[in-house]
Amino acid sequence: MALLELRDVHAGYGSGPDILTGITLDVDEGATTCVIGPNGAGKSTMLKAIVGLVRVRSGEVRLDGQRLNDLRPDQILDRGVCFVPTDRSLFPEMSVRENLVMAGYSIDDKALLGSRIDEVLEMFPVLAERRSERARTLSGGQQQMATLARAWIVRPRVLMVDEPSMGLAPQVTEQVFDVIRGFRETGMTVLLVEQNARKGLECSQWGCVLDLGAKRFDGPADSILANPEIHELYLGRQANGNGSASDG
């Protein structure tokens, strides 16, 4: 049984139409699953539906066989699903350190939280350096590091990251993916949404293509990378910016 399961999930915003039109997906424990797909496919909506930020209208989201639908976002976080949105969602007027304290809002044990904050400050020296500065003064890469540090404080069972490379220089993107790889190596399950499909799939074991609110394909990441049809449809037009749409 997969750790996180989506079964025919329908979801949308307010009273608008369904954006997710019946997604079924299995996310295996301890692996990284990368979701790719064109703009507006519903990738972010899917992650928001999983954590309860968007209401699931029908179908089921399950963690370890237990239903998550209708739980509040804080309750879903308590079950061990942590979401890092594309905009990074730091608290702009709080210091880096306060942001880390806020990250541990769901941790009641003060000593544990303190030691985890110390740990991430050691892991991310750049955050330690700027710990008393306001989060809004950080660069994009530093902000992404701060949100990943926040996730590490929570130690979720499933970490969902929405387009971590958004707006980052290639070199910084590389560092961000290294951190995510490091998380996975500790046994954390990662669900990754990535515009840079090649990069995302290369760092994943499983891949999934979403289009028009439903899953089109899924399979081992390397077979998706090698699949000429998917290449043509979803990878070719954004292949790393070097335009190599037709290698085979």
Partner: peptide, 18 residues
């Protein structure tokens, strides 16, 4: 902390478990 966080970004506050 939770009130300030919610004032700054309601969705982000939900994400960290508020």
């Amino acid at each position: 902390y939770a009130i300030r966080a919610t004032m700054q970004d309601r969705a982000a506050a939900q994400i960290v478990g508020v």
